[in-house]
Simulated assay, not measured.
Amino acid sequence: MEEYEFRVYRISYATRDSEEGQNSKIASKVEESYRRVNRHRIPIKLKTFCWLNFVTLVSILITIGLYIWAGCIHDGTALVGLATMSLSTSVASLSARWYPRLSGRSSQAEVPSGDVIIRTRAGAFILVYGDDDVIRELYEGMEDCEYMFKGNTHHRLLGTSTLLLMASIILLSNCGSEMQIAIGVAYIILNALYWLLALLVEPRDLWDMSRYKIEFVECRPSTPDSSYTETLWAVINMTGSVEWVANGELIPQTPAWDQWLQEAKEHIGKDWDPVRRKDELMNPRLAYRNGRWFD
C-alpha cells in the first residue's frame, strides 16, 4: 500500500459449509485424527493448481527423464543413486510436512461484529469488516503450524533421509560422467526454479483461501498532500469511534493529541479540518487567517 492510503474491505465466509468448518477436509489419518480432537483449529491448504505444485511436477518429470537416460546408457550405479536420492528427498519432505492453522471459536454463543483496523509502517490504514469468527481466524487468534509427524517418528524419518542422502552421494559420485553432468544440470535448474518461486510468487497465489469471500468496499488513495493526521481522521470518521486510536497507541500520549482526539469524536460525520486543528493545538501561539499562519 502507498503511504497514507486508506482501504476498506469486508470479509465473510464464502459458503455455509465454510462457516461450519466442514470444508476443511484433510487427507491423511494423522490430520483427520487431529481435526476430531481440535475442531476449532482450521487448516489452510495449498491450491491444487499453483506454481509450487507446478515446480514439483517439473521436478518429478526431470527425475523420470534422468531414470530413462541412465537406463539407456546402462548406468546401474546412477539408477540406484537416483532412487536413493529420490527416497531421501521424499522422506525428508514427509518428515517436515506441515500446514498453517488458524484459530476458530469453540463456543457457539452470539458475539458482536469483530471489525479490525490495521496500520502499516507507511502510515496507511486498512479497515476490515467481518464477524467475530472470521476476524478471530485471520487476525486475532493464535496461528501456528501443525506438523504431521512429531517426536520420535519425526526423528526416525529424518535419520532415514540422512542415511539415504549419504548413500546417494556415494553412488552418484561413482556413476558415469554423463550422468553426473546431467544430474548436476538438473539440480541447478530445480534450484533456480525454487528461487524464482520464492522471489516472484506471492503467498496469496499459493494458499487456498476460497473459504473466505473478500469484498473491496472503498479506497481513499494517497496524494502528495496526504498526511497521517488526515488519514487517521478519515478512518475515525468511517468507524464512528475513537477508542481504538488510544487503545492502539496510534497517536502520542500528550494533552494536545488527547484534545484533538476528543474534538475528532465530537466532529464525526461533520465537516472538520483535522490538520488545521492539530496545528492549532500543537502551536497555540499561532493564529490562522485567510489560509496563512500568523504569530
Rank of each mutant, 00 (worst) to 15 (best):
L197G: 04
R289I: 06
R211A: 15
E32R: 11
I236R: 00
A198I: 02
Y187D: 05
A182C: 13
G248K: 09
V275L: 14
M166S: 09
R276L: 15
F294C: 12
T231D: 11
A198H: 08
L165F: 07
K45I: 09
Y13A: 09
S12I: 10
R7Y: 03
T229A: 05
S95R: 08
M148P: 02
N23R: 05
E32Q: 05
S12E: 14
V80S: 12
T162F: 09
T48P: 05
A234L: 03
L46S: 01
W257H: 15
L79W: 08
V134R: 07
G240A: 14
G291S: 13
V111P: 03
H154W: 07
Y147K: 01
D75R: 00
L281F: 10
M85D: 13
S161D: 01
E110H: 04
P255G: 01
Y67K: 05
V116Y: 11
A186T: 07
I183P: 00
R41M: 13
F125Y: 15
V185A: 11
M166L: 12
R36V: 03
E2K: 14
L232M: 14
W244M: 09
T162W: 10
S227I: 03
L158C: 02
N53K: 07
M1D: 15
D271V: 08
G248Y: 10
F125H: 03
R156D: 07
W272Q: 06
A83N: 08
F149Y: 13
G130Y: 09
A182P: 00
A182W: 01
I64C: 03
V58L: 11
R136K: 12
W293S: 03
L197C: 02
Y67V: 11
W207Q: 05
Y13T: 01
M282N: 04
A256M: 05
Q259H: 04
A14K: 06
A109K: 10
C72M: 15
Y67P: 03
N152F: 05
P284L: 00
Q180W: 14
K25V: 08
D132E: 11
R105S: 12
N23W: 04
A27D: 02
E5K: 13
R101A: 04
E146S: 02
M1T: 12
E215T: 12
W51Y: 07
G141W: 15
E32H: 07
L250F: 14
V201K: 06
T84M: 15
C175I: 09
Y9C: 00
L79G: 10
Q253G: 06
Y9A: 01
R7M: 06
V91F: 05
Y34E: 08
R211V: 10
W98L: 02
G151Q: 04
F149R: 00
L94A: 13
A192I: 14
E218Q: 14
V128S: 06
G65N: 10
N23D: 04
S90P: 00
Q259I: 03
V245N: 06
R97W: 02
V111E: 11
I11F: 01
Y129R: 15
P284A: 00
W257V: 00
H155Q: 10
F49S: 12
D17M: 03
R292S: 13
S210R: 15
F216V: 05
A92E: 03
A96F: 08
M209I: 05
G184T: 11
I126M: 14
M142T: 10
